[in-house]
């Protein structure tokens, strides 16, 4: 028994928690947009990819200090989110929901190829080497810990925004009753734009945290995009807490799966787990789906 509970296992468990923070942040962005606008941006991971390039260019190429480069990157993706809504989603608000989803699929194609054309297919990284923390026999990269803490901080800010402000309350209210928002004096079009910008900003933050740890290339979104969709489906689309919990569950599976084999198999395990969960708890991890 003791042999099984070894230090590598513990390291993997903690790595999973650290990974879960960033995944939870991404899931929050997707859920926010779905909850308010009732649309899934399947190009969400590609927005993050553009953000990763953004930080790479701001920091490594233009040499801006990090405290300017990171907010600039977040702002850049927030504007992209705004444009995505304004150009693609808004004209489709009355179309079949699936058409909105497919249109964002077109945007996925567009962003991937845009990155290929504009940045080339080479792998790039920030070239920052952050120290490795050693606790006993376990090793954790400082970048991961930083990403985890920043993701948590981002989520706390969103939580405060959602509970303490009028716009945040309206964001929670609109998913409960869309039609009567007009009676409250809420301009839904404007609320959609605010939400899109917010969703974009979250993608921008996730981008900053991911590019600290991983290389960026035009297809990097494909490596974590699918898993984020599984997370939000299992957590229940639009369900913030469900998404949060599911993110950590999946992160653990990926991390522990990766311990015994390649990371890719961790993804496969996660998918298998997902299929099993659909039999066990079809109504979602934390049920609240109509």
């Amino acid at each position: 028994m003791f042999e099984f509970f070894d230090v590598y296992l513990l390291e993997a468990v903690i790595s999973g928690i650290l990974l879960g923070g960033v995944l939870a942040l991404i899931a929050l962005g997707l859920n926010l947009i779905f909850g308010v606008i009732d649309v899934v941006w399947i190009c969400y991971a590609e927005l993050i990819m553009i953000g990763m390039y953004g930080l790479y260019y701001f920091y490594s190429v233009y040499g801006l200090p990090m405290w300017i480069a990171a907010p600039a990157c977040i702002a850049l993706v927030a504007v992209l989110g705004l444009l995505l809504h304004y150009i693609v989603i808004q004209p489709l608000l009355d179309a079949a929901p699936i058409n909105q989803l497919l249109a964002t699929g077109g945007v996925l194609f567009f962003l991937q190829s845009f990155a290929t054309v504009a940045f080339g297919i080479d792998f790039r990284n920030l070239g920052i080497r952050l120290p490795v923390l050693a606790i006993g026999e376990m090793h954790f990269s400082f970048a991961r810990l930083l990403a985890f803490l920043a993701a948590l901080a981002g989520m706390v800010v969103i939580y405060l925004f959602m509970t303490r402000t009028y716009i945040g309350t309206a964001i929670r209210a609109i998913s409960q009753d869309r039609q009567i928002m007009v009676l409250m004096g809420v301009d839904t079009k404007r609320l959609y734009l605010v939400t899109s910008a917010l969703g974009g900003a979250l993608a921008g933050l996730a981008a900053c945290l991911l590019v600290l740890q991983y290389d960026v290339h035009p297809f990097v979104g494909l490596s974590f995009g699918p898993i984020t969709f599984l997370i939000v489906v299992l957590g229940g689309l639009g369900n913030f807490i469900g998404g949060f919990v599911a993110a950590f569950v999946f992160a653990e599976i990926i991390s522990l799966g990766g311990l015994y084999s390649d990371l890719e198999w961790g993804y496969v395990l996660a998918f298998a787990f997902f299929i099993l969960m659909m039999f066990a708890r079809p109504q979602g991890l934390l049920a609240r789906r109509s």
């Binding site: 009028y166 309350t169 309206a170 929670r172 209210a173 409250m184 809420v186």
Partner: peptide
């Protein structure tokens, strides 16, 4: 799923 106060807050949007 908003509290009573949350609902009242929406009324004062």
């Amino acid at each position: 799923r908003l509290t009573v106060e949350g609902n009242l807050r929406m009324g004062a949007f």
